Amino acid sequence: MPLKWLLHWQPNAGASVNSQILTEVSQCADSMNGVKEGRWKSTLTFYRPVIRVQDQALTSELPRDFLGLSMHDQPNKYYFIIRAQRLVLEADLSIQSIMEKLQSYKTRVALNFEGIQYRLGDFQLRVGKVAPINSESLRGIVLEVEYLPISSLEKGRQIMAEFLEIWQEAVSKRSLPGHFMHMETNFADYGLSDHYSSQHTAVQYAIVMAQLIASAQLRS
């Protein structure tokens, strides 16, 4: 699977995200002669356990919370990320209906990551907004950068960094109140190898969500 980096928009102190920033960031892809390839959407769900009286003794054994992710490029799969235990699991999409029937966990919050996909030579860019399901309230802006020829984290690191430098320069020319951040991730902590997979993407989404929450708390 091609190497992918997920970045999030970090507003400057006192600033916030808005639809105008999203529009201008998308225009950066247009200005770099990006070819639009359609829309994309991934959904990240934050689950909390449903503790029944008879199950209270098991509380310490249950994950306090975890994330579920459905991805635009893996429509038949569902991914679970338990950050406290550094676990990432891949399941069939039908696991969602099984969870609903078991009623062991409930959805606390669900966010859509969606926007437009662009092709720039050997790169695919996905610029998107982060918003709660059934709401237009903008919670963040993300950028997926995928380098199609390489699946090795180590081999692709330099060319990804060089591409992002060019991208950040294009964005900075618009004098927007913030910048995109890429969080370095130690995938080995999750038992993942150098060969990139969808599980690596799931871990990046979990980390970006944590950053978005932290950023929102700092601004509130």
Rank of each mutant, 00 (worst) to 15 (best):
P2H: 05
L3D: 05
W5I: 00
L6E: 00
H8E: 01
W9I: 03
Q10L: 10
N12Y: 02
G14K: 03
A15W: 03
S16K: 11
N18Y: 04
I21P: 09
L22P: 06
S26Y: 02
G34V: 01
G38C: 04
W40D: 02
W40H: 03
R48V: 12
R48G: 06
R48P: 03
V50R: 10
I51F: 13
R52I: 04
E61K: 09
L62F: 14
R64F: 10
L67H: 11
G68K: 09
S70A: 12
D73F: 08
R83K: 07
L87C: 07
E90L: 09
L93H: 10
S94Q: 15
Q96P: 06
Q103V: 06
T107D: 13
T107C: 09
F113W: 15
F113T: 00
G121Y: 11
Q124G: 09
Q124A: 14
G128F: 02
G128Y: 03
K129M: 09
N134A: 13
S135I: 02
L148N: 12
S151K: 01
S151I: 05
K155P: 07
K155L: 12
K155R: 11
K155A: 12
K155T: 01
I159F: 09
A161R: 09
A161V: 06
E165G: 04
W167K: 00
W167C: 02
S172E: 09
K173P: 04
R174F: 02
S175E: 15
N186D: 15
D189S: 07
S193L: 03
S193Q: 04
H195W: 13
S197Y: 01
S198L: 08
Q199S: 11
Q199F: 05
H200G: 06
M209P: 03
Q211A: 03
S215M: 14
R219A: 08
R219Y: 08
